[in-house]
């Protein structure tokens, strides 16, 4: 923690608070029918997103999963523009075309969420191949869930990244469940880092509830990638507090298990402890920070509600490169 300064610490804490408040607010709005198509709540997984995105550069590429609000907010998109996208409004980050599951801004290195489990690593691997080909000084991060760890395309992509020494980080947002399936029940060999290391790349199992640990591993992996030393595999152990999708009434885990993670492993509580014990803020200042986040999310909801729907006349925009002249 030696190189952690006050403004960085407070920014990491605030970003995690924004994600938590955003998700809990959006979840409620979803149940009220305000968010078409539902959403996947990432509450509990804030440190994975903020630790990763704070350790990479603005024009590095990310490709993510169906659960991507936290990655998107941590990349620096405003709560307003993400909330507006959930409401499928013209002011949203994908101009209302994407909704919750397809947050994207490809011109800024956000290659999007998507509905295909395990696709994020393949998309990021392709981006990394492009980066290497062009000779850019940047990297790509592919997020994948524990469920996506058992898809073939993910391992094909990891293998190619390894043999071609691509500037890629494979970041497993391992919340321990794939819908109702516990990771331990479906992981042959039991150890994901060990599995990955068989492909010939450095691989680590880390604490995904510790934002500084995630940040440290990603920082090092990025340096390796930029130095031409190839990809790194990081399996960040975390936990999702809510159901797989909004409104899920699951019977596959106990309330005690959820409470245990929330009370002893919460990433925001843990980092609040670090911030206070390092003398970066008092409890009162942390409370003020939380209040300012609350206000920001309220404003995001008001912005999303009052924003216009996309114009019907714009429906062909964004369908192609703009050069084919697609017309209604």
């Amino acid at each position: 923690m030696s190189n952690l300064d006050k403004s960085t610490a407070l920014s990491l804490l605030r970003q995690m608070m924004v994600i938590r408040d955003f998700e809990e607010t959006a979840d409620k709005l979803c149940l009220r029918g305000k968010v078409p198509g539902g959403m996947h709540n990432s509450s509990g997984q804030e440190a994975v997103a903020v630790g990763t995105l704070s350790a990479i550069a603005k024009d590095d590429v990310i490709a993510t999963t169906h659960r991507s609000h936290h990655h998107t907010l941590a990349k620096g998109y405003s709560a307003k523009s993400v909330m507006a996208e959930l409401f499928t409004k013209a002011t949203g980050i994908s101009h209302g075309r994407g909704g919750s599951m397809h947050l994207a801004e490809v011109t800024e290195g956000h290659f999007g969420g998507n509905g295909i489990v395990g696709a994020g690593v393949g998309i990021a691997m392709g981006a990394a191949l492009g980066i290497q080909h062009i000779g850019d000084k940047k990297i790509a991060v592919g997020f994948v869930g524990d469920g996506g760890m058992n898809t073939g395309r993910t391992w094909e992509s990891i293998n190619m990244a390894s043999i071609w020494k691509l500037p890629l980080i494979i970041l497993v947002d391992n919340n321990q469940y794939a819908v109702e399936t516990f990771v331990g029940r479906v992981t042959g060999g039991g150890d994901l880092a060990k599995r990955a290391s068989g492909f010939g790349l450095p691989a680590y199992n880390i604490d995904g509830q510790d934002v500084l640990e995630v940040r440290k591993y990603v920082t090092e992996a990025r340096e390796r990638a930029l130095a031409g030393e190839g990809p790194t595999f990081i399996n960040a152990l975390t936990y999702r507090y809510y159901g797989h999708n909004v409104g899920e009434k699951g019977q596959y885990r106990t309330q005690e298990e959820i409470a245990q993670w929330r009370t002893t492993q919460d990433p925001i509580d843990k980092f609040t402890g670090v911030v206070i014990s390092s003398g970066f803020a008092t409890q009162a200042e942390v409370d003020e920070l939380r209040a300012s986040v609350r206000k920001e999310i309220d404003e995001a909801v008001a912005y999303a509600e009052s924003s216009p729907e996309p114009e019907i006349a714009s429906i062909t925009q964004g369908v192609d490169s703009g050069k084919l002249g697609v017309q209604l």
Binding site: C30, L31, R32, G33, G38, G247
Partner: peptide, 11 residues
């Protein structure tokens, strides 16, 4: 107490 909107197209 409200009727939750569940699924893709629950009216």
């Amino acid at each position: 107490i409200f009727v939750p909107a569940l699924g893709m197209a629950m009216d």
